[in-house]
Amino acid sequence: MKIGFVGLGNMGGPMCRNLVKGVNHEVVVHDLNPEAVRACTEQGATAAASLAALAGTCDVILTSLPTPRHVEAVATEIAASARPGTAFFDLSTNAPAVVRRLHEELAPRGITLLDAPVTGGVARAVDGSIVVMVGGEEAVFEQHRAILAAFSGTLVHVGPVGSASVAKLINNMLVLCNIAVAAEGMMIGRMAGIDLTKLVNIIENGSGDSVGFRGLAARGLKGEFKASFALDLAYKDLGLAVDLATEHGVPGLMAPQALALMRMGRALGHGGLDSTAMLKVYEVLMGKEVRL
């Protein structure tokens, strides 16, 4: 079997390298960044001459791309070149409606698309414990379970195509809203004059703890804003979640406020920083830094 992997960024790169180490199949890779490609070929992958060449020779294709627009562009090229019987797992965070439409467009060509977004962050992508949630034909999922398990620690078949994207957007909505309120809480603590190290210790061992809070404590509160999950990408994900709420008539009371905070952060030029740079909006507004 030949497996194609497209998109070798912060998440796709380590997932691909774990795939190469975890299967006995040939893995062919494609990315616009030569350094990202090299990092995978050094582990044993083969570089494709083009996306069309990859799509035309692979039995299974995995994509890990930044936005729905990128997924649509790559899917168009895959549709033009892939052979009937190809299984296409999109690991990107996408809008459920886009995933379902692409599935319908690819099906007549004999290409089966499953949405397979991931969660857990870069560290878990590196150590192979990432969570992969899958929407689509269960038989196709089971047929390729071992491939997905090569770079993940938990696999969940959520339901029909698009359902995994719903789960992913809700998951990201929760963590991003947690970061937003954590930034607000820490600024309150700063303005009230209490010891922030003790406050962090209380929260991390108390009921206010969350993955989002721990991310803020580990990066933002130490002034380390190099992107693990960039604010621009986080903004895209939360925007998709807000759109999904609107589509289903769910009142948006929390997520839109966090989205507005992120929009302010991007307006301040922090879009390329880590999503915990939401804290910097409060620092600008209050004229005080919040640091441990």
Rank of each mutant, 00 (worst) to 15 (best):
M1G: 10
G4R: 04
L8V: 09
L8D: 06
G9R: 11
G9Y: 10
M11L: 15
G13S: 10
G13F: 05
P14Y: 13
M15W: 04
C16S: 05
L19P: 12
K21F: 10
G22N: 05
V27W: 12
V28S: 03
E35Y: 12
A39W: 05
A45M: 02
T46W: 09
A47I: 06
A52Q: 15
A53M: 07
A55E: 13
T57A: 09
V60T: 09
S64N: 07
S64H: 01
P66S: 08
P68M: 12
V74I: 12
A75P: 01
I78C: 06
A80D: 14
P84A: 14
G85K: 13
A87W: 03
D90C: 15
D90H: 02
A95S: 11
A95C: 08
P96Y: 02
V98T: 13
R100Q: 15
I111R: 00
I111A: 03
L114S: 04
D115S: 12
D115R: 02
D115F: 12
A116Y: 06
P117V: 15
V118G: 00
A125M: 12
V126C: 04
V126K: 14
D127A: 13
G128F: 03
Q143G: 09
Q143A: 13
R145F: 05
I147V: 14
I147L: 15
L148E: 04
F151Q: 07
F151C: 09
L155V: 05
H157F: 12
H157W: 15
G159Q: 02
A164R: 00
S165W: 00
N178G: 12
N178H: 14
G185M: 12
G193V: 14
D195E: 15
D195F: 13
L196C: 06
L199S: 09
V200G: 03
N201S: 07
E204C: 02
S210T: 11
S210I: 04
G212V: 11
F213M: 07
R214W: 04
L221A: 04
L221S: 08
L221T: 02
G223V: 14
G223H: 07
F225E: 00
A227H: 03
A230I: 10
D237Y: 09
L240S: 08
L240K: 07
L244W: 07
T246N: 09
T246C: 02
M254W: 00
L259D: 11
A260S: 15
A260L: 15
S275R: 04
T276Y: 08
M278V: 14
V281K: 03
V281H: 06
Y282C: 08
E283G: 06
E283N: 13
E289R: 05
R291I: 06
